[in-house]
């Protein structure tokens, strides 16, 4: 048990987590206003894997994530988490949104925002206990942001916002972490903090699915890759996906050489 595991020893582990497939996406189609942005997307992620979802701008990566989580209604297909529907295991799945999806002018302190992550275990009316608050502080510590705990949200820089959002996800104590471009426009310190947390997360046998843009470090950071270009056009190890003709079709020959 590493330091990260010891942060959270309080949540209900009643749901059986013995399944090997952490996430399964089967024929998923989704879009906005009747338009289909991603269609017939299928792939599986095994427990303990760190998977990158890559694809050119507008390929439907974020749309795919949102459809998997039910944030937008799928037009077809389904997604399973730990072999169940999302509604049945929502406390085991955390989503780190893009930082600009949040109103950072909201009158609140960092600690209160992170505490929101415990809400999925407490329901609408549950009260945060002293142990919940301890978990909040430990999650902030895990992302090297404990010093931000009592700062107003409006005071945070871009990198700090990403760390705080990750802390909010971690305090949920999830088995599956889904992140939308967490490495975009962050400094080296923040990047190191995020990677350290992800390493600990993976060491615990937990699963991470991350929309990622920088093709240059995919090999170093991820076990497997899903290439999205309107649909899932390739899956496999980074090497296999980079050598797939679908990769060149999506990004062009220059990106192929860079990757």
């Amino acid at each position: 048990m590493n330091a990260f595991t010891s942060l959270f020893m309080m949540t209900d582990k009643s749901a059986s987590l013995a399944q090997k497939t952490a996430v399964g996406v089967y024929g998923l189609a989704a879009g906005y206003g009747g338009e289909t942005i991603v269609r017939d997307a299928s792939f599986e992620v095994q427990q303990g894997e760190r998977l990158a979802i890559i694809g050119p701008n507008g390929a439907g990566k974020s749309t795919l994530l949102k459809a998997m989580l039910g944030l937008i209604k799928p037009q077809a297909g389904s997604a399973r988490f730990l072999d169940r529907r999302f509604n049945e295991v929502r406390q085991h799945v955390a989503y780190v949104t893009q930082a600009d999806d949040i109103d950072w002018r909201f009158p609140s302190k960092v600690r209160d925002l992170v505490a929101m992550g415990r809400g999925v275990h407490l329901g609408l009316t549950g009260r945060l206990s002293a142990r919940d608050w301890q978990a909040v502080d430990r999650a902030l510590d895990a992302v090297n942001s404990l010093d931000l705990a009592h700062r107003p949200l409006s005071d945070l820089s871009g990198g700090q916002r990403r760390r705080v959002l990750l802390a909010r996800a971690l305090v949920q104590d999830p088995q599956i972490l889904i992140m939308d471009e967490p490495f975009q426009a962050i400094d080296e310190a923040t990047r190191a903090a995020l990677l350290s947390v992800l390493d600990d997360f993976q060491d615990d046998g937990k699963t991470a699915i991350i929309v990622h843009h920088n093709l240059g470090d995919v090999r170093a950071l991820f076990d497997r890759v899903v290439l999205v270009d309107g649909t899932v056009t390739a899956t496999g190890t980074p090497e296999a996906v980079f050598d797939d003709p679908a990769f060149t079709a999506a990004f062009g020959a220059i990106a192929h050489r860079a990757a």
Binding site: G70, L71, R90, Y95, T97, I102, M116
Partner: peptide, 26 residues
Amino acid sequence: AVLRRGLMNWVLDPQSSTLHGNQQTL
């Protein structure tokens, strides 16, 4: 007084509230 935590979540980040399963109730 009872719902203030859930309400704050909903007002600040409706997406998170949806993931927690509280959106429709709120």
